[in-house]
Design a protein around this nucleic acid. Structure first.
Length: 289
DNA sequence: AAGTGTTTCAACCGCGACCAC
DNA sequence: TGTGGTCGCGGTTGAAACACT
């Protein structure tokens, strides 16, 4: 029993979109919103299936999409988030506003995965490959792998802390401590407040993670890495990062009273973990590969 | 210049989750 | 509770662009 096709395929166009089709789609959505994707093509007069329209809009035509090459900061963030979230591109994309999951997936598959491989790091586990025929690696052999081992260690520690916390507290549903932890936090009103403030101030820090990480920057234990050239863009102003802390550490205003004390406590814990997370430790080794 | 191999990325496909009935 | 419709996600594909010989 096969699954019904998502749409009637007869007479529907496939393949690359024509500029005229783009124009029709954009104009329609601007006027009516996308509504039901399934019925959109018919209403807009497009010979495409709804799925194709949705994909074209979300990955290419949406006005808030940032196109062009990824910055080093963005690449670092993708690698870091991949270490936490794995191949959950949509979750990763949620941390990189204006970038699409498809774009990030392509970046990973074409650039970042290879870069990690060339450094001797398993792109799936973010762990150094064990030496041939030997036991599990004991001491990473290159600065890059040493750094990644540190990162992995920090990640595991954070996970352990989350697991531990989950044993002692009842998390509200929106903050269940699993791997979506940070994502939910970012999508909560805490993240909302931060985004608002961040928009007003600067575009230097793009997410709570980059903000938090800049405040948590420490000298990397590996001097070879720490000593390598770091782009000026890495030096995110401390004041901006403090602004995130101040917003998130202060009680929320009364505009949204749905957040109970219990959930506030959980948010505080989550925030602290977030702020402690050593994400923006020097990853300039990426530039050298 | 032509042929061949490699890389990139937009688009497709199938599956699972969610929701309304 | 079961069923069907819809949406979103992640894996994969294939044409175009690019690099190399």
């Amino acid at each position: 029993m096969g699954r019904k096709p998502c749409c009637e395929k007869k007479g529907l166009k496939k393949g690359p979109w024509e500029p005229e089709e783009d124009e029709i789609l954009v104009n329609y959505i601007k006027q009516h919103g996308h509504g039901s994707w399934r019925s959109l093509p018919k209403l807009a007069g497009l010979l495409r299936c709804g799925k194709s329209c949705r994909l074209r809009w979300t990955n290419y035509l949406r006005p808030d999409i940032k196109r062009g090459p990824f910055t080093l900061e963005e690449e670092k963030l993708v690698i870091q988030l991949h270490g936490i979230l794995g191949n959950r591109w949509a979750a990763i994309a949620a941390q990189l506003p204006r970038r699409t999951d498809n774009e990030i997936k392509n970046l990973w598959n074409t650039h970042l995965r290879k870069r990690l491989l060339c450094m001797g790091i398993d792109p799936q586990t973010h762990k150094p490959f064990p030496p041939c025929g030997g036991p599990t690696v004991a001491a990473p052999s290159s600065p890059g792998t040493r750094h990644m081992a540190q990162w992995e260690s920090a990640r595991l520690e954070a996970e352990a802390r989350l697991s531990k916390d989950s044993l002692h507290s009842n998390y509200p549903p929106f903050l269940k401590p699993d791997s979506d932890y940070f994502l939910r936090l970012w999508n909560s009103e805490v993240g909302e407040s931060f985004r608002k403030l961040n928009t007003e101030h600067s575009t230097a820090c793009r997410s709570p993670i980059s903000q938090a990480s800049s405040s948590a920057v420490t000298v990397d234990a590996c001097p070879n890495i720490a000593g390598s050239s770091t782009p000026a863009s890495n030096q995110i102003e401390e004041t901006e990062c403090k602004s995130f802390k101040s917003v998130t550490e202060e009680p929320m205003d009364g505009s949204d009273s749905s957040c109970s004390n219990e959930s506030e406590d959980s948010s505080d814990t989550a925030l602290q973990l977030l702020l402690d997370f050593p994400i923006n430790n020097d990853m300039s080794f990426l530039e050298n590969c």
